[in-house]
Amino acid sequence: MISGTAAVDELAAGAPEIAAFGTESVRLGGVTGLSLVAELRRPAREAVLPPGLHPIVPPAMSLLAWDVSESPWGAFSAAFVRVVCRSGARARTFCVGAAASTDDAVAGLRSQFGFPAQRTHVALRRHYDGVDLTVAPAGESDNGASVGHGAGPMLELSALDPDPLSVGDLQHVGSMNLAHTPLGLRLVQVETHHEPSRVERLAARIDAFDAAAWGQPLLDPYWVVSCSVSLEDVEIPAIRFVCDPALPAAEGTERVQ
């Protein structure tokens, strides 16, 4: 069994801070969600994960994007770049980078759930025959969170030819977010619950991906596996488990509520 080899100290630089674990879930209403899986090249397999997580074969990236109509943080758009992994025997993703279009969303995602969100321009546009997603730097944010590097887009993708699926055909995998918590530096397990009313699968193409801007230059999503779009409500429950990033889940898991 292989484990991540990334230096936890280096991953911790810039990790969000969760001052106190919340007890309330956050509900996102009227969400257009995009989910894309792409295979990564081999050098990224172990090198991007902390020792407490295990890569899969082949290494893969899971991109999630939301356009949210209603939330405690107002309307916003967000995108999450995640590496598919295992925590113990569980299917998970490790969130390498995140972007959100408003300061309130950035603050909420960082402080409540440990997503390494930065303020950016995020545009998820759904058309009758497809979807476009653009993530681009948006300048300095109010809370001081760092912003994408360079002048080009951090991400551009387009997807065409929606093919309807049943709502149960789409599986979502939880996210492990590295954050400074009251228990110390921990992988925070975020399990989103999705209530889709419509799911479509599309053929997608990644037109631009600035790995460094997402905080992990080794990411190279060279082979798109699948792309889907859903109309859904999303609940982000309060955090229940955290894991020591340096230990296997069987040894390093703590229940926080």
Binding site: V84, A89, D169
Partner: peptide
């Protein structure tokens, strides 16, 4: 069992009936 759990199952990668 652990090595089995670490496989990349189709349903996880590719939404399909």
């Amino acid at each position: 069992s652990m090595s089995n759990a670490h496989l990349y199952f189709t349903r996880e990668a590719y939404p399909t009936r």
